[in-house]
């Protein structure tokens, strides 16, 4: 493996990892704060992709504005889902069956809604002007849009770190993850906090769907396709662990990128293997401190 190919494969693994992380971050946020495993998170990714198609390809809205609006739109749908449905299952972790049932139903409902509105044909979005060609670095040609995705991923990581650690809203969210009752006793509107966290997480999912749409095909079922890999990432990183999700995504992205080169026939197996190993030896997640979680 020569050096430039190594770098190329590293960067392509990074693109994959970034998109994985952006989906997984919302998933892990909802789990961390609300103790809900939102199976339907991928469906918000899909909503974001379809909204982006509607705005950018059909209504000819500016690409960047379209991205932001798609994220907001998906967040809005997320808030509606939270207020009417998910709010009822917080703190019922011991009845995990209900969570799976409810969020799985959401997948089916959203999938059918998308089919009714946009049909089953595949949709695509063109890459924005200025990001259609490659960037030359040395003798490497890297698609500029892929680089953009990586940069956006880093911005999201930094912004999320800042919000969660440096702002009052972030501290409230983290407090909600630890003890909702105590938070309520201190005069914080807990249901509102949960709704906002859910809205932000689903908006992030929708934004990712929109961001990925120019590189992928927008189809019904697109949500289910991303949720499994994101789930693996979340499990590896530790359920509810934001940084863990990032590290997990990097691990899976790069492992797959180099797995493809070294043992192409078994490349897709790696992520599952890592998950199994983590579940056996460190079930709380690779990047979670070893402690007993609060019940």
């Amino acid at each position: 493996m020569d050096f430039s190919f190594f770098i190329m494969q590293l960067i392509s693994g990074l693109t994959v990892a970034t998109l994985l992380f952006l989906v997984a971050s919302g998933l892990t946020l909802i789990f961390g704060v609300g103790d809900v495993f939102n199976f339907a998170h991928g469906s918000f990714y899909m909503i974001g992709a379809y909204l982006a198609f509607q705005m950018i390809s059909v209504l000819q809205v500016n690409f960047w504005l379209g991205l932001v609006l798609s994220g907001l739109g998906a967040g809005l749908v997320g808030i509606v889902a939270e207020v009417f449905l998910l709010r009822r299952i917080y703190g019922r972790k011991h009845e995990a069956g209900f969570q799976i049932l409810l969020t799985f139903c959401l997948i089916l409902i959203i999938d059918d809604l998308v089919k009714i509105i946009w049909g089953t044909e595949y949709k695509t979005i063109q890459r924005p002007s200025g990001f259609t060609g490659p960037v030359q670095i040395g003798d490497l040609y890297i698609p500029s849009y892929n680089l953009l995705i990586i940069v956006v991923g880093i911005i999201v990581v930094v912004a999320a770190w800042w919000v969660l650690n440096k702002t009052r809203a972030g501290k409230i969210a983290r407090a909600a993850a630890v003890d909702r009752e105590m938070l309520g006793a201190m005069g914080i509107n807990v249901p509102m906090t949960m709704t906002m966290v859910f809205g932000i997480a689903t908006a992030l999912g929708g934004f990712t769907g929109a961001l990925a749409a120019p590189l992928r095909s927008v189809t019904p079922g697109a949500g289910v396709e991303v949720i499994i890999d994101s789930l693996i990432v979340v499990v590896i990183g530790g359920m509810g662990n934001f940084w863990g999700a990032w590290m997990g995504a990097l691990l899976i992205g790069e492992l797959t990128a180099f797995g493809i080169v070294i043992v192409p026939k078994w490349a897709t197996l790696f992520s599952y293997l890592v998950m199994i190993i983590v579940l056996i030896f460190k079930p709380e997640g690779l990047f979670s401190p070893r402690k007993i979680r609060k019940v």
């Binding site: 190919f5 190329m8 494969q9 960067i11 392509s12 693994g13 693109t15 994959v16 998109l19 892929n146 990925a212 590189l215 992928r216 079922g221 697109a222 396709e225 991303v226 992205g253 797959t256 990128a257 493809i260 080169v261 192409p264 026939k265 490349a267 897709t268």
Partner: peptide
């Protein structure tokens, strides 16, 4: 020879290889 999963959303790493 390359064998991604059916419905895989991303082929970037396959393409560079």
């Amino acid at each position: 020879e390359y064998w991604p999963k059916i419905y895989a959303p991303d082929y970037t790493s396959y393409i560079t290889s």
